[in-house]
Nucleic acid binder design. Sequence first.
DNA 1: ACCACAGGGTCTCTTAAAGGAACTCCAGAG
DNA 2: CTCTGGAGTTCCTTTAAGAGACCCTGTGGT
Lengths: 158, 158
Amino acid sequence: MQRTQFGAMACSIARTLDVIGEPWSPLVLRDVWVGINRFDQMQADLGISRKVLTERLDHLVEEGVLERHPYDRRPRFEYRLTQKGTELVDLLMVMTAWGDKWLAGEAGPPVLYRHHACGEISSVDLRCDHCGEPMHATDIDPLPGPGAAPVPAAVSEA
Amino acid sequence: MQRTQFGAMACSIARTLDVIGEPWSPLVLRDVWVGINRFDQMQADLGISRKVLTERLDHLVEEGVLERHPYDRRPRFEYRLTQKGTELVDLLMVMTAWGDKWLAGEAGPPVLYRHHACGEISSVDLRCDHCGEPMHATDIDPLPGPGAAPVPAAVSEA
DNA sequence: ACCACAGGGTCTCTTAAAGGAACTCCAGAG
DNA sequence: CTCTGGAGTTCCTTTAAGAGACCCTGTGGT
């Protein structure tokens, strides 16, 4: 719903939410990722209302996360991930890992991932891109960066 | 808003969205993570409506992501991350990395992270927890897992 | 003992977004 | 020349977010 626009906050989390924070958006992205990339396929797969699906697709295309590719002389499109969108899938992979661990219950994870490099069923882990050691919530200190608090007159964020 | 409950879908992404998919929830989590953990502090920091903040905090506590710690004889609470919540911060770190790369613009990232292990300003990278090689969207194949499609009578998901 | 204060909510009202379903548009098949 | 099937679009109803006033309860000052 999001009446408040998060994009103006000096916070990359808030800005990212402006792109995929709306309800259904991550699931639309997931569908495109796994190859469900036409309107009616997605609609059927997700059970989302057609109106909302239209809005989400338009928004994701505007944001440069998806691209429309015509596949017919009529205005018929397939949606595909851009580079920006492909990198956003990292987020889905981490959501999957967390959901698998904390929410899957006795049935176990609904989907497994096989890693091409090693051929194993595995999941994703977060590492420091400098030293390669694990990097999680308690392993870091936040410091103000160059883009901090850009609008002095603004009300609040962090 | 989310009239549709995602939690019933056989998809860890959808289930995770049920926990933190509502508007503001990730930002509430971020605040608690960085030490803004009382009601009025969060309200002031985010500019969220008090009603919605109450709902989000209640929900996150119910889901076991946050814990209430009294700090007064009156019913006054600090909110803290549980283990489940701390691991969910991984998601925020990945959102931050993506937002820093694609949305920060010329000003640069609003916040930097210093990694304790190496002392460097760095960001997070996704690795296979088996072989340690990079693991991104195009490096994996999804396969059906043990918890796939639990309700044969159900309508749709993936 | 009394009053003002502040943290942490609750209530109410308005506005906008999600759900659902019917309707439109158009190219190609028969 | 009508039928069908993707891809939207329109309309209506329901519900959640935004905004801001109001409430309740210890506490500290006088």
